[in-house]
Lab assay of single mutants.
Amino acid sequence: MDVFMKGLSKAKEGVVAAAEKTKQGVAEAAGKTKEGVLYVGSKTKEGVVHGVATVAEKTKEQVTNVGGAVVTGVTAVAQKTVEGAGSIAAATGFVKKDQLGKNEEGAPQEGILEDMPVDPDNEAYEMPSEEGYQDYEPEA
């Protein structure tokens, strides 16, 4: 019985440690998101679009440190934060509304985080759909 109880105690310690790591990862992701939003706020009209992409990228980098179902929630929060940063930029006159959601080359930025393969159960990952990809044929 002692062996059984000791095993359960060790398992509990492992769960607590994993929860603490997840909590730490979420806190880091939130900190990076805040950094990115402050970065966007300090940019001029020309830099705002690039700044919004930076927020998304920093958040995406930190999301990889967070495991399990938390990833889905962090990704949703990050996307809403990026959308909010863009709205703030438009409201303050840093950028025109028609410039939001495009990178410096004018290509749409939507789907940055949505296409990231995420499995809350950590069982399997699927690649994003290939609808947006084109076949590449090298020139002879």
Rank of each mutant, 00 (worst) to 15 (best):
G86C: 13
E105R: 07
E137W: 06
A30V: 05
F94W: 11
E35A: 07
D98F: 03
K34M: 15
M5Y: 02
T64M: 14
P117M: 09
A27Q: 11
P117Y: 07
K21L: 13
E131G: 02
E104P: 14
V95G: 02
I88Q: 04
V63M: 03
F94N: 06
E130H: 14
K21E: 02
D115F: 05
V55M: 15
Q109L: 11
T75E: 09
A17D: 05
G41R: 13
K10R: 05
E57F: 13
T22P: 03
K58T: 10
D2I: 10
S129M: 10
G68Y: 12
M127C: 02
A76Q: 09
V66T: 04
K32R: 06
A76I: 06
A19T: 04
G93N: 11
A85L: 15
T59S: 07
K60W: 08
E57C: 09
V77T: 06
V48C: 08
K58Y: 13
F94P: 06
A85C: 05
V48L: 08
I88Y: 08
E57R: 06
K60A: 13
T44W: 15
G7K: 01
L100R: 01
E28C: 05
L38M: 11
V3K: 04
V95T: 14
A78Y: 09
L38E: 03
E137K: 03
Q99W: 07
K43I: 12
P138T: 08
E35K: 10
K12L: 11
Q79T: 11
G93C: 07
A85P: 05
G106C: 10
F94K: 00
T64W: 11
Y125H: 13
Q79R: 01
E57P: 03
G47V: 03
V3S: 04
V74A: 12
S42N: 14
A85M: 12
P120K: 09
K80S: 01
A56P: 04
D135K: 13
A91M: 14
N103I: 04
P138A: 09
V66D: 01
E137A: 14
G84Q: 13
P128D: 07
V3E: 01
G86P: 02
N103A: 09
V52W: 09
A140I: 06
G51E: 01
V71M: 02
P138Q: 13
V15K: 00
G47K: 10
G93R: 08
D98Q: 09
Q62G: 00
P128Q: 05
G41F: 13
L100I: 09
A19L: 15
A30R: 05
A124N: 08
T75I: 13
K58F: 02
Q79H: 02
E13D: 01
Y136W: 12
A124W: 10
K10H: 09
A17V: 02
N122P: 10
K10P: 00
K45R: 15
V52K: 00
K10F: 00
V95S: 12
D121S: 12
H50A: 03
Y136T: 03
G132R: 06
E123V: 12
D2C: 10
V3W: 04
F94E: 05
V82G: 03
S87H: 13
